[in-house]
Amino acid sequence: MSRLAVRKTYKLFIGGAFPRSESGRSFVVTDAKGGFVANAARASRKDARDAVVAARKAFPGWSGATAYNRGQILYRVAEMLEGRRAQFAEELGTGKKAALEAVDATVDRLVWYAGWSDKITAVLGTANPVAGPYFNLSSPEPTGVVAIAAPDDPLLGLVSVVAPAVVTGNTCVVIASQRSPLAAITLAEVLATSDLPGGVVNVLTGHQRELAPSLAGHMDVNALDLTGVADAELAVECEQAAAANLKRVLRPAPEDWTADPGTRRMAALLETKTVWHPLGV
């Protein structure tokens, strides 16, 4: 007997919940040949604002969690992703072999970043030599709320920009790739079931042109990752808007997502706190 098709509704991921866009809009996602794949929610500026509120609310808890705990949760995300290998491979819509490779690389990337959670401080922090009876210690601190324009690589690229932002204690609002946003929402389902506190990662699907400038100008966003902005003019506009509250900005640059990522992305979204401490006698 044939069953009725149960089709998935792709929604946004804000504050740990899956709401539709406040605007009620959606847009059509097509495959490489232009065929219909699904409707995705088209987030509005209001959704972006709500996402920032959720991210800000989640920040004290997430940045205050121990690095070990954040690593565990990221590792848990990798575990859950591993369990959904087949689903992601199918959703990526590329050839089966290439898709599975991409999913595996994504899982490995998460595990890699999970391991960094309690080591990055040792690499970026220092004990500074000073001419006085003080300890002088610099340690990396999360910047706050990071707005990310994710690259078009739908899964590996997305995880490669989100994981370095959150592993160090930031919370983020991600604009998923406009061309292939579906994997981002399925990833959100993984995040929602991985003990990641609601609001740490918020995923918006929609038009980058519409969402990026409003996040770039938002005074409650502390850093901006423009990696996925292909339009040079838009990138400049965003960077200018970001100057109003001196956001940290990661400029768009060509990336090879399969290469060893290094600590660059984590370091770019950290601030350095330096304390002077009197020496005991």
Partner: peptide, 9 residues
């Protein structure tokens, strides 16, 4: 200003 304000300010 046209930009969303933040509680930091």
């Amino acid at each position: 200003t046209g930009r969303y304000a933040g509680p930091d300010y």
